[in-house]
Structure formats: C-alpha cells, structure tokens
C-alpha cells in the first residue's frame, strides 16, 4: 500500500534525514506558520516527487523531528511547504526558524490520496484548522489537473476569521470561478463576509449529492466525527469517504512501533484511509 521507496539510499539509511534550508516563513495564524524549505542537495530537489497526502519528517537538529503533511502540491518544484501548529518541543523550535536556517527533512513518507482513482469524479474537500495542510496540497493538485475532475468543492472551516490559513490561496479559489469554495467560521464579526456556522452544518446546508462524488475530510476529531455523520446521512458510502489519521510518530517507517491501529501502521499504511478501510480496523482511535 505504501509508496515509500524501499530501495536505494533512503531505504538503506531510512532514519538519516536530508539537510534543507528554510527559504520562506509565512505566519498564517497566531499559532500556525508555513515554512518553505529546499533540499541542500540540488539533485535531490530536482528529482523530488510525491503525491498529495504524503507526509514528511521536518526536523531541527537538537530539538528533534516531527511528522507534518506536505502542504505544497507536487507541481511546486521550487520548495516543499509544511504548515506547522505550535504545540510542543519540536514545533516550538520550528516556529523559531528564520529564512536561511538549517533544517532536516525525511520525505516523502506514507501513502497518499488515491487521486488517480478519482479521475472523472466530483471531489468534495472538507477541512478544518491545521487539517487543511494536506488538503491544500490535494486541492492545488486537482486544480493543476482541473480537466481530470468534475465539480470541485471545498468547505473550509476555522474558529474565527483570524484562524484562517492560506489567505492568498483562499482569495484565488474564491475568484477563479472554476471551483466552489466556501469558508465558514464558528463565530462571526461585522467584517466577515463568508459563512458563519460549524462545518457539518454548512455541509448539510450545501447538501452535495453523493452521485459520482468523493468526499475528503481532515481536521479536528470532533469536526471529522460530525462531518462523517452528515456525509452518511446524505448517502455517501464508506468507500467514497477519505480521511487521514494522526498518531504519535517517531520513526515514520514502521519500526519504532507506536503508531499502529491494530495491525496497521499509520506511518506506512497511512495516513490516508477510506472510511471503508477504517471500518475494517479494530476500533482504537
């Protein structure tokens, strides 16, 4: 299932990261920053490929490394973007980085959204909070290959207007007219022009048809829980629904033991699972 190379240098020394340099830091919200990094090895940068949904281990030597979704699309060959919410030791060290600082990356890792299998289908993307990171990669990828998909809809929820990430992308998506983009916030203020209401409620108002549709959702666990309920009510079947799992991770390659859900390892078998696949796993969320 996993697409991580098991041959070559990376397979032989899988815990050894590549050196990279920060080329841009974007403050998204009060606790989320996006970092754009470039491998020091130019050849590696040129040959680097991945699929939307794959993750990487971004690290600061001395603080450690952590798992983050790759937030840039595969077509972006200039840099690799991660969006990092500040929560603990490593993420704090990452938040202290400036342009020119040295980081480490092990990527790509894990499986990806099965975008090839979604060709010709409508895709409904539902994101909340930092869960937008892998969805940004996915959505930009689908827009790069716009003709391969049917109707594209993105519902993006945040707590307040200042919690919204990717403002430039949001503006583009709103303006391009080619996709149906809805932002919603939990509590509004006068200046807010988007929708107000929790993501599941907005989803139910929209009532997308499950016909030839794929739904992808990432975000806070409570949001996912209610989004899945709503999707079920609207007639989406489990094999039409995809989400990503999060687990505490260390090695990212199925060896350190901690990220399993029953017999499956989120780091190598995931992080992307269809609801059908999740249903076949023991309930250990």
């Amino acid at each position: 299932m996993s697409t991580i190379p098991r041959q070559g240098k990376k397979a032989l020394e899988p815990l050894r990261p590549e050196k990279a340099t920060v080329v841009d830091v974007i403050r998204e919200t009060h606790n989320i920053k996006s970092l754009r990094v470039v491998f020091d090895d130019e050849e590696l940068m040129t040959s680097f490929t991945f699929q939307p949904g794959q993750v990487g281990q971004l690290g600061v030597m001395g603080a450690g490394e952590s798992t983050f979704a790759i937030a840039s699309p595969p077509s972006q060959r200039e840099y690799i973007q991660f969006s990092v919410m500040k929560t603990g030791v490593v993420t704090t060290a990452i938040h202290e980085l400036a342009v020119g600082d040295r980081v480490t990356v092990r990527a790509p890792m894990g499986n990806h959204f099965p975008v090839d299998r979604w060709q010709g289908k409508n895709v409904l993307v539902i994101g909340g909070g930092i869960g937008m990171a892998p969805l940004r990669s996915l959505f930009l990828h689908m827009m790069d290959h716009r003709e391969e998909y049917g109707h594209l809809q993105l519902i993006y929820g945040a707590r307040t207007p200042s919690d919204i990430c990717y403002r430039d992308d949001c503006r583009d998506w709103k303006q391009c007219g080619d996709v149906d983009f809805i932002t919603t916030i939990d509590t509004g203020n006068q200046d807010w022009e988007g929708r107000v209401g929790l993501v599941p409620a907005v989803l139910e108002e929209e009532e997308p048809s499950p016909e030839n549709n794929i739904a992808v959702t990432c975000g806070p666990p409570v949001m996912i829980k209610f989004v899945l309920e709503s999707l079920g009510k609207m007639g989406f079947r489990d094999e039409q629904i995809y989400t990503t799992l999060e687990r505490r991770m260390k090695c990212g390659i199925g060896l350190c033991g901690r990220c399993n859900v029953g017999p499956r390892y989120v780091c190598t078998d995931g992080p992307v699972f269809s609801l059908k696949e999740l249903g076949e796993l023991p309930d250990e969320m």
Partner: peptide
C-alpha cells in the same frame, strides 16, 4: 528488521 533490501526498510 533484517529483510533483504527492497522488501522492507533497513535498520542499518
């Protein structure tokens, strides 16, 4: 931890 290259990650 010691499958032949290609079959798994290596733990060097």
């Amino acid at each position: 931890l010691a499958l032949p290259p290609g079959e798994s990650y290596q733990d060097p």
